[in-house]
Design a protein around this nucleic acid. Structure first.
Lengths: 253, 253
DNA sequence: CTTCTCTAGGTACAGCGTACGTAGAAGCTT
DNA sequence: AAGCTTCTACGTACGCTGTACCTAGAGAAG
């Protein structure tokens, strides 16, 4: 008795409704393209900001390798797997941390017009940030860094360097050089600090290597007295060189 | 009946001979201070070079995160834990990889005297090396790099920059800037290549961000036509700037 | 009110670095 | 030559990781 006139195609009963879409066909990989909240369902108990803050607190205290999904979830008072509702992969948690830390920049509202001074000030601000968050340089180097706060920084750099007359692309390259130098410096400071325990071992090894005769120029560099080893002065010395390079006329003409 | 006159102190049976030294009191942390072979015991089945080569082959094929102690040991046909006889920690395996890759540098026997040309040539050699081993920049950034081959490179750089008249310390700082720039560039190339899949997503996101009005300078930089985007040309452009910075007179005087 | 989507969370799995212990080979000492 | 010592090889096991998958239940949309 075909009285069941349900509209759902009674002619092909061998095709029950296929699961309409078990996975939404395309969730963007970029976390900045995923809305934090869609409006449906219960209100989330946490926010991206609070998650990033929890992760940053762990990284500041115990280093980046202590930041695990379990640790962050526990710090939030949530179950481990609940975190995956906010952050599809751990990589994205790192993206959130990177941008949340970048939010700490205190950028002046507008460039002063003195490119040298503005760049020096920006560099010191960045170095201070990296010293506050020793795990940050590694993230800056490894990840694109295009969150909203990173874009704010980029925009500021472009504004600061506008008086150079360089085209936008060249100023982006200059920013890469500028940021790269500061990252490297901060990273080096860290490995030096972490290796302070083996400093003696290393000094012994290096002097032995220098005295072996295999590295004459290294030996000579070790022998001659150099500029003082104060890290801040070393930073300023190289920073001057980098700013000099940025302000130099474009090589091509 | 105390007839058992064994020499092992029958009077204090509560103090059996304490294990003379369960751990040798001080094994150097630096792998370059540990002799590869002490002479005692059976001949090792592998060498540091072959271990590093196996690890590098894996990293070249599948990336640094595929290099695990188990994978490397399996590639050598050894048990996992046997590897720990050669390499006390995984960190040291990375040190071996770093130095083995550094051994690939083809350095000229002596500088030509033209600092600019020598530095440019060295930079291109380094970029080629980094492109051959995409995992290498990350190691160079993260680890001190003081193996014998790294020292050979350092010595060469010092020789090349000797005509500048800069003191040894300043030339070391110049080397850090030089290497740092090349590392950053190679690292950036990689993340760009790895993210080619999401390039479209990213371009969409960035243009949307630029058009939002929140980043006026970024929008302007996007709008204006820049120099060509060929990576090799971009490298050479910034390399020129870096060499310029190195050859500039010392800021302090 | 029904339905659908979203959230919270548990369980489980493969893989990681590596501490520890055992068995045996090879050089040094006697 | 014998024995002591030290090294190598390797299996087992532990705690940790990221995360796939599943079950409930909350709450907005129709």
């Amino acid at each position: 008795m075909p009285s069941s006139n349900s509209p759902s195609s009674p002619d092909q009963p061998e095709q029950p409704p296929p699961p309409p879409r078990p996975t939404p066909p395309e969730a963007p990989e970029l976390i900045w393209l995923r809305p934090e909240r869609t409006g449906r369902g219960p209100r989330p108990a946490h926010s991206r900001d609070s998650i990033a803050a929890a992760a940053i607190a762990i990284a500041d205290a115990e280093g980046l390798e202590a930041v695990s999904m379990r640790r962050v979830a526990a710090a939030l008072g949530a179950g481990t797997m609940s975190l995956y509702n906010y952050v599809p992969k751990k990589e994205h948690l790192l993206d959130l941390m990177l941008d949340a830390a970048t939010a700490e920049y205190r950028l002046p509202p507008a460039p002063s017009g003195d490119v040298r001074a503005d760049l020096a000030s920006l560099a010191h601000e960045q170095l201070a940030l990296f010293r506050r968050h020793p795990w940050l340089p590694a993230l800056v180097i490894a990840r694109p860094g295009i969150g909203p706060n990173a874009l704010r920084y980029t925009d500021h750099f472009l504004a600061v360097t506008a008086p150079t007359g360089l085209p936008g692309g060249a100023r982006m390259e200059a920013m890469a050089l500028f940021n790269g130098f500061i990252c490297q410096f901060a990273q080096y400071e860290q490995t030096a600090a972490a290796g302070a325990k083996w400093q003696a071992e290393m000094v012994g090894y290096l002097t032995q290597a220098a005295m072996s005769g295999a590295y004459p120029n290294l030996a000579q560099a070790f022998a001659a007295p150099g500029p003082p080893a104060d890290p801040d002065q070393a930073f300023d010395r190289t920073l001057d060189r980098v700013i000099h390079a940025i302000l130099a006329p474009t090589p091509g003409g």
